[in-house]
């Protein structure tokens, strides 16, 4: 187990290093000259030379990377040339939003998907299974840019139960905070419900046909006990792997929802920074989003090893 974790940790470090290299090179691959974007009409040879020096762009790539990564280790991701806000502060705004969106949306998705999958798997191809499968298939066809406005129209504009846009921090009150994240979370959860439901249902049906389940039934164990004690664990591997990818992706993939609900999360700020070629913000946000993705999946791998010893031996 420890060897497995150590191996994975080494892999994590290597991947994070590669991510940092790509994040660093990302800005150099963007079309256009970042100094021109920054200077605009003030672009003179003298001004450009000063800016190149300030940004360290006049040095070699390795030197630039070295400086950049050392600054990161000191907690200095630089500052937006546009707003002068430090990238660390921008992340301080963005990360809580994304974390909450991810947690709330995935909890909602799992709360809906798991019971549905259990009921459907117990009686496959019956009425509930057909309704659930069809409706989740329909949900899969409902992109967030459609679901989001529909939710706003009903619950914010018409019923006025929740705000249409914006994020209220936890410090402003739990109720207010939850009100501000519920609609975007539901919009995000819709897609996840479908994926989780289908993954879990398929695995549950397969597991329920295993000999050990027949044996358990023949012993007279209750269905509920069999499901919870013997079936859920071996059926949750695909769900867990899917959740890992889904959660990791949401750190930047929630961009559409963030725009619709005006939530300055990582995806939203990253795209804004790309548009304005806000050099250091792009680097910092991309780095954090990518590292978050990798770390989440590392966590999922770790969980899988606990749930399924075969993974350790693989």
């Amino acid at each position: 187990m420890l060897r497995f974790i150590a191996t994975r940790l080494v892999q994590l470090v290597v991947i994070c290093f590669l991510i940092s290299v790509f994040a660093f090179l990302l800005v150099h691959l963007l079309p256009g000259d970042p100094t021109l974007a920054i200077l605009g009409p003030n672009d003179t040879p003298a001004a450009r030379a000063v800016l190149l020096h300030q940004l360290g762009l006049n040095k070699g790539l390795v030197s630039q990377y070295g400086t950049w990564i050392m600054n990161i280790f000191h907690g200095n991701l630089g500052a937006s040339f546009l707003t002068k806000q430090t990238v660390t502060n921008a992340l301080g705004v963005a990360v809580p939003i994304d974390l909450e969106l991810v947690v709330v949306s995935q909890v909602l998705a799992l709360l809906v998907a798991i019971p549905m999958a259990l009921i459907a798997a117990l009686r496959p191809n019956r009425l509930f299974d057909r309704i659930a499968t069809t409706s989740t298939f329909a949900m899969l066809s409902l992109p967030t840019f459609v679901a989001g406005p529909l939710l706003v129209l009903v619950f914010a504009v018409t019923l006025k139960w929740v705000p249409a846009t914006g994020f209220d921090r936890l410090s402003q009150g739990l109720g207010q905070n939850l009100k501000s994240v519920i609609l975007p979370s539901v919009a995000l959860a819709i897609g996840s419900v479908t994926v989780y439901y289908r993954l879990l249902r398929a695995d549950l049906i397969a597991t329920l046909q295993e000999d050990f389940v027949t044996m358990a039934r023949s012993k007279g164990l209750s269905t509920r006990y069999i499901l919870m004690r013997h079936v859920m664990r071996p059926s949750s591997f695909s769900l867990l792997a899917g959740a890992g990818i889904s959660i990791g992706t949401l750190f930047t993939g929630a961009f559409v929802v963030e725009v619709l609900f005006q939530l300055p999360g990582i995806g939203y700020q990253l795209v804004q920074a790309i548009y304005s070629r806000d050099y250091l913000v792009v680097q910092g946000m991309a780095l954090v989003a990518a590292v978050a993705f990798v770390v989440v999946n590392f966590g999922v791998d770790f969980l899988l090893t606990i749930l399924d010893p075969r993974v350790r031996r693989a």
């Binding site: 974007a37 920054i38 200077l39 605009g40 009409p41 003030n42 001004a47 000063v50 800016l51 300030q54 940004l55 500052a79 040339f81 546009l82 002068k84």
Partner: peptide, 8 residues
């Protein structure tokens, strides 16, 4: 970075 504020 001081000059960056002059971006249009």
């Amino acid at each position: 970075m001081a000059d960056s504020a002059d971006r249009y």
